[in-house]
C-alpha cells in the first residue's frame, strides 16, 4: 500500500465527537488495548487527521502516527504502536526466508506462514499461545478479513501489518497463494513518513 514514498496532505484536527468515535472503534476492534487506551489516546489530547494518497487517512497524536485507514476499512495500527504494545494484537509469524521479501514490499504468501519457521494458530511449538486468535473458538483459527500483525522468526518486533486474505484454516489446507493483502511494513513510505 505504501511502496512509494508518500507526501502527507494537510493535517487537520479531529472533532472531539469524531475522536470519541475513533476511540470506540479502536476498542471494539482491539479490545486488548483497553488498559492502555488512555496512554495511547488520552481523552483530552487533540488527535490529528492526516490525509495520505489513495484515500488513506492517518490518525496521529502530536506527530506520532497511531492508526491508518483506507476509506471505511478497519483501522490498522501503525507499526510503532505495535512495537509498543505487541501483545494486544493478533499475531502470526513468518519464517526467516520470507523477511526480505516482506521488507521489500511483496505481498505475504502462505508458505512463509506454513513452513517450519512460521506460526499459524494452533502450532504445536507455540506453547505460550502467543500466535493466533485469543478468544479460542475453533482452536483460535482466524477468518479472512481479520487484521493481523506479522512477526518474524528469530526477531522480537513485528515487521508487517495487514488484512488476512485467506482464513488460517484454509491456509493449512492449501499451503499456497497470497496470505495477506498489502498493508504496512517496516521501511515503507508510511514508516518513513515524517509528520513533524
Amino acid at each position: 500500500m505504501f511502496k512509494k514514498d508518500i507526501t502527507p496532505g494537510p493535517k487537520t484536527k479531529v472533532k472531539s465527537s469524531a475522536q470519541r468515535g475513533i476511540r470506540q472503534k479502536v476498542l471494539d476492534q482491539y479490545p486488548q488495548l483497553e488498559p492502555y487506551i488512555d496512554d495511547i489516546m488520552p481523552k483530552k489530547e487533540q488527535l490529528d487527521l492526516v490525509k495520505l494518497p489513495d484515500r488513506i487517512a492517518l490518525y496521529a497524536l502530536s506527530a506520532v502516527p497511531l492508526f491508518f485507514q483506507h476509506m471505511d476499512d478497519p483501522l490498522l495500527p501503525h507499526l510503532t504502536l505495535i512495537h509498543r504494545y505487541p501483545h494486544c494484537f493478533t499475531r502470526l509469524r513468518i519464517d526467516r526466508g520470507a523477511i526480505r521479501f516482506v521488507l521489500s514490499g511483496a505481498s505475504l504468501m502462505v508458505p512463509g506462514l506454513t513452513s517450519a519457521g512460521g506460526r499459524l494458530p494452533g502450532n504445536a511449538d507455540d506453547t505460550e499461545g502467543r500466535y493466533g486468535g485469543k478468544d479460542g473458538g475453533d482452536g483460535g483459527e482466524l477468518d479472512a478479513g481479520e487484521v493481523v500483525v506479522i512477526e518474524a522468526e528469530g526477531k522480537e518486533n513485528a515487521c508487517f501489518v495487514g488484512v488476512l486474505k485467506m482464513g488460517t484454516g484454509e491456509m493449512k489446507r492449501v499451503r499456497k497463494g497470497q496470505a495477506l493483502e498489502g498493508g504496512h511494513y517496516l521501511g515503507d513510505g508510511l514508516w518513513q513518513l515524517n509528520l513533524a
Binding site: Y36, H83, R84, Y85, P86, E156, N157, L186, G187, W191
Partner: peptide
C-alpha cells in the same frame, strides 16, 4: 508497557 523499542539511527528500522 509501553515497550521501548530502539530504532536504528541509520536506516530507522529496529
Amino acid at each position: 508497557f509501553p515497550k521501548k523499542v530502539v530504532y536504528c539511527g541509520v536506516c530507522s528500522l529496529p
